[in-house]
Amino acid sequence: MGESTAIPLAEAKPGQFFRIHRLSLDGTMRRRLLDLGFIPGAEVKVLQKSPLGDPMAFLVANTTIALRKEESAQIYGEIIGERGDHHG
């Protein structure tokens, strides 16, 4: 799937699996996301949204991590499946 079809992780729905293409931020915020496991190529499962949609919880590299929307909106990639599909 090409770059043009990439969507922000923030728009993925609970139960969906998402593959990261790129992070569109720099500096300390980028470093932090990489350290948390949000690496290009990584597969992320959306676990849940809090009532106001922020923060969101994700399963990444076998650990649950919550991100604020300002962060998950900067992570671009594609939906690769839904709950019930087999992954990993």
């Binding site: 300390t28 470093r31 932090r32 350290d35 948390l36 496991g37």
Partner: peptide, 9 residues
Amino acid sequence: PGTYSLYSN
């Protein structure tokens, strides 16, 4: 302290 990295300051 538990950390995922030593460089996110």
